[in-house]
Design a protein around this nucleic acid. Structure first.
Lengths: 190, 190
DNA sequence: CGACTTTCGTTCGGTCTCAAATTGTACGGA
DNA sequence: TCCGTACAATTTGAGACCGAACGAAAGTCG
């Protein structure tokens, strides 16, 4: 249950650990709180509206994307939902088996797969989304409309920074070195 | 790559879908951006500083918590790291097998397990944390120190709202009904 | 001091997660 | 038409993730 106090406290401890190396405190606190807030909100939504419809966060997001954007190619859905396409394959399979999502080949391009909501999926969203939005309002009820706008704007700028300059930054950090493989994940056959 | 435009666009589409039911737009945009930002930041950090040391986000957070707070009981670490205690058991096992984390029984209370960093773990954090904080600064470099403070504050208020009133809210929503079990998860033996 | 209750950490089932390897389709040029 | 390149989704391997069930230890109270 770490609020402001913990973070401030943690800063001091981390500072002491480093013996004088300066810490970017404001930035550290901002980033830490982004994750705290994200997981608190996610937790609340999963355990309130989503639980009753037996949906995980990710499953809901995927359905939501297809709902608002209509029949879509999987890579767009993955991008929009913020998950990898590998993950989407699995999630879509699950949702398909539950009769919420349909899957169809693209008429012109055989490589593409199109996702769309079934009638059952459509009904589900019609029912669940309003409740979901209601809880979004609940979690932000400590903020005014204006503050919500400010919050959204500040976060948007963080997202843009990473999207616009992240890749370049990562290249610079590696500086020529090949980007170390992940520990988990597939290995070369050889 | 959905920035402001996508969200605004999505609002209209969702709005149309609902045929007149009002949407809390600011709240929806704020919540959506919290998650967008969280995953963008996490992605960037995993693929820059953490990757090189073969750490996942969660593994790093766990190490960080033990690092700043010192030898700690597992439930505190889980709480502070924002993961369930079940997850922590697994993560701690992994980190222990890599020689970064130590595990010891509590002398007075046989139920407790204490986690602490090994020397190797200590060295790792000494090296990795400054780089991590550097990237926290990078992702927020579009914001001034003041804006970071504002951002942290707004997010903190969201977290507090959920922590202080979330449980009660969820009870109200269920209104007596037993809280539907998760689809995945252990079942009663019977 | 024995029976209840609480509180630990661990185990377990099912899902999600990533990125690399793989498979399949498309399309340009030789 | 065959060939290589480009790009799509899927499979795969290792692990993170949650929360209910669980067993052990500790506390409580008669």
């Amino acid at each position: 249950m770490p609020g402001q106090r913990s973070i401030t406290e943690a800063e001091k401890l981390a500072s002491a650990k480093l013996g004088g190396i300066p810490i970017r405190r404001e930035q550290m606190a901002a980033v830490a709180n982004v994750h705290r807030a994200a997981s608190a909100v996610r937790q609340h939504l999963e355990n309130s509206v989503l639980r009753g419809s037996d949906l995980t966060w990710t499953a809901f997001v995927v359905l939501w994307v297809v709902w608002v954007w209509g029949e879509s190619e999987t890579r767009h859905v993955a991008e929009e939902a913020g998950i990898s396409k590998g993950t989407l394959t699995g999630v879509a399979r699950t949702l398909e088996s539950r009769g919420l999502l349909g899957r169809a080949g693209h008429p012109g391009d055989g490589r593409l797969v199109l996702l769309s909501l079934t009638d059952k999926g459509e009904e589900l969203m019609q029912r669940v989304f309003p409740a979901f939005n209601e809880e979004e309002a609940f979690v932000t009820s400590g903020l005014s409309d204006d503050e919500c706008r400010t919050l959204a704007d500040l976060l948007r700028r963080v997202v843009l920074q990473v999207e616009d300059h992240g890749e370049e930054r990562r290249r610079e950090l590696l500086d020529g070195a090949e980007p170390a493989p992940r520990r988990s994940g597939r290995r070369a056959k050889a």
